[in-house]
């Protein structure tokens, strides 16, 4: 049976990624690290505050935002780490949800932007658009604290809860608006700035 409403997701309001990214960043008061996944996820994170030193903008390696965030969370257990990832990217690396659940880092939050398409390459359909419920998948991977954000206020509430202790996965249905900004394209500068922001000397 093809469940086109994908479990629970049908109750979620379609929101805007840049608006939600700004709402997230506004909640970050303790120099939390943020790992932005490839493409529009990154672009909106950049546009939300390019001067923010604790942001890492992943330029390639599609699907690795959550694994990178897990590594930061293990290395710095007293700092909260947020991974921002697209639905197509997460589909590429679903197994990482099981790894996160197995390690169960309290200082990790995963936020998934789900528009059901590979937006940046021309909006080709992703399996999330018709078949896969990523919150149900995350729960099945062992991440009991996984939720769809029903609307903007619910997103805020879920983020506040997640920052108190996780691991937590928050998924949001988003519209087809493109990313607002464009990240710098200098990987060494991005990496060095991020490490400085985390207080690490290479």
């Amino acid at each position: 049976m093809n469940n086109r409403t994908a479990g629970g997701a049908h109750n979620a309001k379609v929101m805007n990624r840049f608006a939600l990214t700004k709402r997230l960043v506004a909640k970050l008061k303790r120099d939390e690290a943020v790992i932005g996944g490839i493409g529009n996820t990154n672009f909106d994170l950049w546009a939300s505050g390019p001067e923010r030193e604790q942001n890492f903008y992943m330029l390639g390696s599609m699907g690795l935002a959550i694994p990178i965030a897990l590594g930061v969370a293990i290395a710095q257990p007293r700092r909260h780490v947020v991974a921002l990832e697209g639905d197509g990217s997460l589909l590429m690396q679903l197994g990482c949800l099981g790894t996160v659940a197995m390690r169960a880092p309290r200082n990790l939050t995963m936020i998934v932007w789900d528009n059901g398409v590979y937006q940046i390459t021309g909006a080709q359909p992703a399996a999330t658009g018709s078949a896969v419920d990523l919150v149900a998948a995350a729960r099945a991977c062992g991440l009991a604290n996984s939720h769809w954000a029903a609307d903007e206020d619910d997103f805020d509430r879920l983020v506040e809860g997640a920052l108190q202790g996780g691991p937590t996965l928050i998924a949001a249905k988003i519209d087809g608006e493109p990313g607002v900004g464009q990240t710098e394209r200098d990987p060494v500068r991005i990496r060095a700035a991020f490490m400085k922001g985390l207080g690490v000397k290479p």
């Binding site: 690795l64 694994p67 990178i68 965030a69 590594g71 290395a75 790894t99």
Partner: peptide, 10 residues
């Protein structure tokens, strides 16, 4: 990816 994040975290 995990090891890259760990390095950046020190």
């Amino acid at each position: 990816g995990i090891n890259t994040g760990a390095w950046m975290g020190g």
